[in-house]
Structure formats: structure tokens, C-alpha cells
Amino acid sequence: MTTLQLKNIVKRYKSQTVLDDLTLDVADGERLVLFGPSGAGKTVLLRLVAGVIEPDEGRVLIGGEDMTDVDAEHRGVGMAFQNFALFPHMSAFDNIASPLTATRSSKEKIAAGVQKVAKLLKIDHVLTHHPKALSNGQKQRTALARALVGSPPLLLLDDPLRNVDAKLRFEMRLELPRLLAAQGATVVYVTQDYKEAMALGDRIAVMASGRIRQIGTPQEIYNAPADIEIARLFGDPTINLLDVTPQRSGGDAFVELSNVRVRLGDYGADVVGSPCVIGLRPEAISFVDAAAPGAIPVTVEAETPLNEKTVTLALTARGREILVSRPAGTPGPTAGPAHIAVNGAQAFLFDKTSGALLPRADLAAKRNGEAA
């Protein structure tokens, strides 16, 4: 059983703290995605797990064993880098075979292992080529094959699709989950692409400034972002964020958009009358007839087709911009006066000062198994 446990990891470079008291558990066979902006500390964390660098504080446990002071070659870890890191003087075959060669495997085992993984990644026809003769996509697959060939129990993938073309990136998003599941390894995958994180991760750990800001399934991260910054990172087009002051009517809080009430559910008394930010995913907003219940008047400014969806920019009565997303081919206004409806159940409220997500009392009751 291969688990990964990071306990109170600290890594500093001179006066800069790159990893700040970071603790993380990855289950056996789990695909965990480290997601966050450049400079968050993702690659440093992978290199530390691999044993390329050492922590200043904390421990690294692999399969329950403390590996903090164990050399990289004895950790049983496979790693693929975003810049491929191939040996230029070696053929693709020899690059892939290098982990097996280092363990003095037989020629027969090396040949069989390389052919198997190369066939899976569809690069068996370029095994005699050197890196300079390979396309970026072939280089990426060669680096990934090298990481996979020794069937390492722990696999670290550092944004391996970043430098490949859009078509291959899309294909690999579909193929990688199958390949990694067949490998049976515990996987830590780094990316700055939220779609990739959503597609590949059993769980996502959102990193910023050397800390983990939120960890959960893709659905949990998307449907309950811990703060405004995480909400902004997930979604295309980006989430609508509007300053509001919630009020209460009956048991529910509400806000007003274009002087129309949008009910939000049951929030605590401390939220009512306090400056907040409402978050509305573009797909939680739809165009409706003026006579529909809760119809909010807007002015349509522009429309942009984006392959599978159409995104519309509209203005509220106060001139605030709202993005509305609908499936491509769905009818909708292209300019001038229109009306929208907001699904208040899918709205988020964030604290204006801290940016933290404000919990709904009725949802908390459901999670605790109580009657809502």
C-alpha cells in the first residue's frame, strides 16, 4: 500500500518561505491534483517528495515509512517534468529505459517494458529517434513513459501537458485517467489548468503562497469554493462577483438586482445588513420572459459564441456587468432590453473583507443529517 503523508513541511530559500507548515495526506491509489497559480509552491513540493530537495522542517512519509532523509533513487518514485528533461544524446527508447537500466534489469525486461508503455502512449514508432527529432507531443509522451515504465508505486507529474498543443492536451485529458488507473499508482499531479484539474483529480488541493487553501473533490471545489479567489480560478467564463448587502424576508436572506429580489436561502443573522459579495456562476443565470417569476431587467451589450456555449454580457439597472452562459444553439437576446432569472440556490455569499465563503444554515443542517 502506497500512501503519501506530508507533515508540517517548511521550505525556505533565503528569506522567502516557499512551503509554509504544509500538511497533506494522499490515499493509496488516489489521483490528487495540486492546483494553483505560478509561484504557489507546487513544483517545489513535488521535488521535495521526490527527494531532489530536502525540507527545512517536517517529514515525508511514503507507504508509512519516513523518507525525509532517504536519497531520491531509493524512494520508489517516478516523476515527469513539464520541460520533458530528456537526455538529448539518447534515443527515445533509451530515455524511457533509463529507470530500468539504473536498476540493472535484464535486456529482455527492459525491451518488454519500454515496448509496452510506448505502445500505450502511441510512441512505439519513434523509439529510435533522438529528442531533437521528436515533436513536443512525442517528447511529452516519452517523458511520461519514462516515469511509468518502472511501475513506481508513487507517480509525480509536474504539469506534463503544459507544453503540448491543444489537440493533444485534450486527448491526453481523456487518456491519462485510464492510463493512470491501469498503472495502479498513487499520483500527485500538478497543473495550472482548472479543466485539467477537474478532469484528472479524485481530489484537488488548491495551493497559494505555499499553503493549501482548500482540498476536496472537483465537485466540492466548484460548488463550494472556500473563498473568492478560489471561485475565480474555477470556471470559464469566470464567476460574476457583485457587491451586495443581504436583507431578510421570512426565513430567507435576499439581495436585490435591478430592484428585484433574489432569494438566497437561510443565512445567519450576522450576514443580514453586512457588506458582502455575491458570486453567480454564468450558467446559474438564464434568459426568461419579462412575465416570468423573479425576472430581472437587464440590457444585453454583447454576445460571444464559444464552441459549446454562448456567453452574453449584460448590464443591470445600476450598470453592473453580468455574464450569462447558455448552451450553443439555445435562443437568446443578442442586444437591447432583456430579462434574466438567477438560481439563488446556486449563488455564493462571500465576506466582503476576508473573501471567505459564508455558510448557509440550511445546507449545514443537511450535511449534519438534520432536517433542513
Rank of each mutant, 00 (worst) to 15 (best):
I123E: 03
D124Q: 14
K132A: 12
L134D: 00
L134K: 04
S135T: 15
N136W: 00
G137C: 06
Q138W: 03
K139V: 04
K139C: 13
Q140Y: 08
Q140V: 09
A143N: 08
L144Q: 10
A147Y: 06
A147N: 08
P152R: 04
P153A: 14
D159E: 15
L161K: 12
R162Y: 09
V164P: 13
A166E: 14
K167L: 13
F170G: 09
F170Y: 13
F170T: 14
E171Y: 13
E171D: 15
E171N: 14
R173C: 10
R178D: 14
A181P: 07
A185T: 05
T186P: 10
T186W: 09
V187F: 11
Y189S: 08
T191M: 11
A197R: 08
A197V: 06
A197W: 11
G201L: 01
R203S: 09
R203F: 10
V206S: 11
M207D: 07
A208W: 07
S209A: 15
R211V: 14
R213P: 00
I215K: 08
G216S: 12
P218R: 11
Q219Y: 12
E220Y: 02
E220R: 05
Y222C: 09
P225R: 03
P225S: 02
E229M: 08
F234A: 05
F234T: 04
P237T: 02
P237H: 06
P237R: 02
T238W: 01
T238H: 12
T238P: 09
D243A: 15
D243M: 05
P246K: 02
R248W: 01
S249C: 10
V255D: 01
V260P: 00
